[in-house]
Design a protein around this nucleic acid. Structure first.
Lengths: 356, 356
DNA sequence: TTGAAAGCGCTAACAT
DNA sequence: ATGTTAGCGCTTTCAA
């Protein structure tokens, strides 16, 4: 900043070239780190660049290389620590590899997701990582478009019906079954599952849920019921828990029933918090009156009282892997085999025997 | 996608122009929505674009307009819900205004922050919102650089010494004083404050903390002590609580003392969780043995037991305002007066009378 | 209203 | 190793 010229425009390779008394091309080579440059010229150019306060224009660079070194990430809700953690993994790996991250929030709305994809494509991102909206029904031409335009695509958490792309996710079936089995063994017969997934109500069968983790979770539950030879009640599967009001309505429905649930499973931490507030309002004690399980093992679940039984998944590592794989894909390298992400059920104080 | 050509390259304005039988310039005008275009030509061009699956190249566009319609956001830790919420506010407003968000995580390290700024400047972002690293000492040439290159800059949460830029933040002094006063009135005499801020130990005076919220919080505490005419112990101010290990060390120090604290205030939710785990390990009951207050009012603080007394700040709204103001700044509009963000102390179950 | 042509700042191909 | 000359896909003069 010592000797910045009064000129308003930022110095370009041409300016540096003039200052260093070399050709524009040679200056560009030195600055861009490509081609052959003599040591002599290299130092002269660097000194000139320093003097002028030159800063490369990534836009111009991207324009003729075709690569922007940018990843687009579209998540349902940045506010949700689940995505916060995933994002952290993605951005750590991306930064390490020299990629930048453009972020978009879909609010779980397909229209916004589509718009975000469009914008990212126009910005010429090299690849997009998306946690697609959890609407089971719709097809996804906007995602197909990403591939059609030769950009890399990786799905996070959720697969979609109509395409064959890599998905970073875990298989919840086994762990969901295990958790349910433990609840069944503790005498629970009516176990509810509350999810934010958009879905026509009432829920009927896992197919309503598409290829989502939610479907796996329910499938695991059903399996446990089948094994235990206990009839499974689909009416206790409650989708559309999009906000506090929706959760309130769901709890209302659940406990208006002649045979209310004795155990409730929350699909994510936001829903869990909302549910617990409702339970508290109704004076339901955990685990005496109601057993409670939530997905995702966040630190606060250990310090609440009773500490929450949770189903843990390695969200940060999954974020890292998502970034690692899409970057490999972009570079045309082999991403290697997909690691098996482990989920596990951690029994803590929020689950207990069913009330008599 | 019905009639995509086999050509590998994406269609450009030139292709559309040829297809629509107009000049390149005219096609570009129609597509870009600028200049004068007859209705006749407009429809022909749009039809042609549709047929070809044309998609504007934002990079090229940015290159000659100089505006990229992009905001850079640098936060200390995306994983921290505080920033998650702020980010949500920023991205909601940005999207609404047609801006994209590039995200970077500084990990609270100045070197990474500087690198992030450099990269964003090279990407020609229109403005940068940064929650500067909480190192009180250092000057910030990299931030000054942002202004020097004519880009907008807004600080979030923290101000910096050596420059005059807008800061989105709250004044904690009053609320910190109020909370402290209540603790003093409840008989507490030794009140500790634990923060992740980088700072030479031991802490001596608020000046060590620079223009940060941390300084305000401590100043508020000191004020309350002064008013109550109780001597204030600087040794109970504990900076550098960067991770679980650091928190463990701090708790160790705090309770190795002959006169341990009877109340502890956590600077953020991550530290709070870490602290509570340590307290639990030591068998310290809250609030019987120890009163506890944390900054930020997150939903889970209501459902832990006892529910936590917190100091609330409108993080989401602050994120929105940060985006709103920097966009106004970019557009050369008047951002209007800075709203007064309110903080308040919410007394819940984690605070009580000091143990005898 | 339209078109031709000149850039934006860089990389890439081709000389030398 | 260096210089010359084209572009990349768009916006922007400047004429017509």
């Amino acid at each position: 900043m010592t000797s910045t010229n009064m000129r308003m425009k930022a110095p370009t390779t041409a300016d540096v070239a003039r200052e260093a008394k070399v050709s524009k091309a040679q200056a560009a080579r030195a600055l861009g780190g490509y081609g052959a440059v003599s040591e002599e010229v290299m130092t002269r150019v660097q000194a000139a660049a320093e003097r002028l306060g030159y800063r490369p224009n990534e836009l111009a660079r991207s324009m003729n290389t075709g690569r922007s070194n940018t990843l687009g990430v579209i998540v349902g809700d940045i506010e949700n620590p689940h995505f916060g953690l995933a994002l952290r993994g993605i951005s750590d790996v991306a930064r390490e590899a020299g990629y930048h991250v453009i972020l978009s929030n879909s609010d779980e709305q397909v229209a916004i997701e589509q718009e975000a994809v469009r914008v990212m494509l126009e910005k010429r991102v090299d690849g997009i990582i998306v946690a697609p909206c959890s609407s089971a029904a719709s097809h996804n031409p906007h995602l197909a478009q990403v591939l059609a335009e030769g950009r890399a695509l990786t799905l996070f958490d959720r697969a979609v019906y109509d395409m064959d792309v890599e998905v970073i996710g875990v298989d919840f079936t086994r762990t969901a079954q295990q958790a349910t089995q433990e609840l069944l063994e503790a005498g629970h017969r009516r176990i509810a599952y509350v999810t934010s997934m958009n879905c026509a109500e009432p829920y009927r069968s896992p197919e309503d849920m598409g290829l989502t983790p939610v479907a796996q979770r329910i499938a695991g539950m059903e399996q446990a019921f089948r094994v235990a030879e206990v009839p499974f009640a689909p009416t206790l599967i409650k989708p559309n828990a999009l906000d506090d009001a929706a959760v309130a309505r769901i709890v209302e429905e659940l406990f208006a029933d002649a045979a209310p649930p004795t155990a409730v499973i929350a699909s994510d931490s936001l829903i869990a918090q909302s549910l617990m507030r409702e339970f508290h309002l109704r004076g339901l004690r955990i685990p005496q009156d109601l057993s409670f399980v939530m997905y995702d093992n966040f630190p606060w679940t250990e310090i609440v009282s009773p500490p929450l039984s949770v189903i843990a998944q390695p969200v940060y590592e999954m974020g890292c892997e998502a970034a690692r794989r899409i970057i490999a894909q972009i570079r045309g390298q082999d991403p290697g085999p997909m690691p098996a992400f482990e989920t596990r059920y951690i029994r803590r104080g929020s689950t207990g025997p069913a009330p008599r």
